[in-house]
Amino acid sequence: MSQPKSFVIGNRKIGRDVQPFIIAEMSGNHNQSLERALEIVEAAAKAGAHALKIQTYTADTMTIDHAEGEFSIDDPNSLWKGKSLYKLYQEAYTPWEWHKPIFDRCKELGMIGFSTPFDESAVDFLESLDVPIYKIASFENIDLPLIRRVARTGKPIIISTGMASIAELDEAVRAAREEGCEHLVLLKCTSTYPASPENTNILTIPHMRELFNVEVGLSDHTMGVGVAVASVALGATVIEKHFTLRRADGGVDSAFSLEPQEFESLVVESERAWQSLGKVRYGPTEKEKNSLVFRRSLYVVEDIKKGETLTKQNLRAIRPGYGLPPKYIDQLLGKKVKRDVKKGTPASWELFDE
């Protein structure tokens, strides 16, 4: 099967031949303050993020104002236990009038600003701002009408795959492609908040690449950067992590968000992981060739007179590596030297009688 083609968003290339594309997800970590939102943009840029993502919805486009039954979160393990869906989305949403100043600040700082739309009205609004790429959230990856609407913009699409079966992902990919999407990225995602490494299954990443012939990556809700960095070795070309100024400030997503210093570590270490991949090869690299002299080799370690025999006392495998390889020691022991040999002479075939 042919490999997915790399592509460019703004000034950033996405593909296996460049460092991973790192996205800082602001989500609701602005805590309903535009000033804080812009501080987050600036901190993300300073930490080295290539893009900053927000989410485009209102409580009314997500659900109805109803707090009974299934409209209230009763999972005892949820960060949002006891809240109605409507109240949660009211608290977490990013006011639409903030989008332009957020995107403008991203552009000023050399980052790509984009968003996740949750319904068609959000797509129409984001098109008015000419965003360069779209993200489909895990909970929306079964919303085929939304995927089709986004694909019709002609922009690249990133789809998080949380909870989706292979059949559901196949439907999502087909829907995007049928409407003309040429550049598609699937992000392995575990839709728990936070997620545990044990429940992340990043071995799925190369499988998704092969199965759907798309760029792949990770939307990571685990703590720290270890899982994200490991994903690079499995072919992740895009990494998305939630980002906040300080977890102690609170907020709907703060508990599983990276702080600036941690995010900077993610950028640096994911690039190092990518640089380390290289290709399958054996033997010394060009840089290693100068180190060959520090291998062990066979040396005469005592003065020997002509005609004397090599023994374990006067012939040893030591550093440096200018003598014969240690594998020849059994062949040399017992041989007689054909001339006087000084201590510190590297063993060579020329020292011995045939």
Rank of each mutant, 00 (worst) to 15 (best):
M163V: 11
P284I: 13
I166D: 12
D340Q: 07
S297P: 11
P320D: 13
N314K: 06
E288T: 12
Y282G: 08
H66C: 10
A172C: 08
G154R: 06
E70G: 13
F263C: 01
I14Q: 03
F352T: 09
L218E: 06
V238C: 09
E259D: 03
S6E: 14
W349A: 11
I159L: 12
S128A: 13
A347D: 02
Q3A: 11
Y322Q: 15
V301H: 06
N201F: 15
L88A: 03
A51I: 00
T222H: 10
W80D: 04
M208N: 03
V123F: 09
V293E: 12
G323W: 12
R281A: 13
V131Q: 05
K312S: 10
D74M: 03
Q55Y: 02
V227G: 07
S128L: 05
A233V: 02
L211E: 13
A67H: 11
A59N: 03
S84P: 04
S191T: 15
I133H: 06
S196V: 05
E127C: 11
L324R: 14
G48F: 01
Y134Q: 07
P101C: 04
I133Q: 05
E240G: 04
N213Q: 15
Q90A: 03
K241D: 00
Y193E: 02
R316V: 01
R295T: 14
T94M: 09
D249R: 05
P325G: 11
A228T: 08
P325F: 09
V268A: 11
I166E: 12
D60N: 14
P76W: 07
G217E: 04
F139L: 12
D220H: 03
A176L: 10
K155Y: 04
S72E: 10
E178F: 00
T192S: 15
R295G: 14
V227C: 13
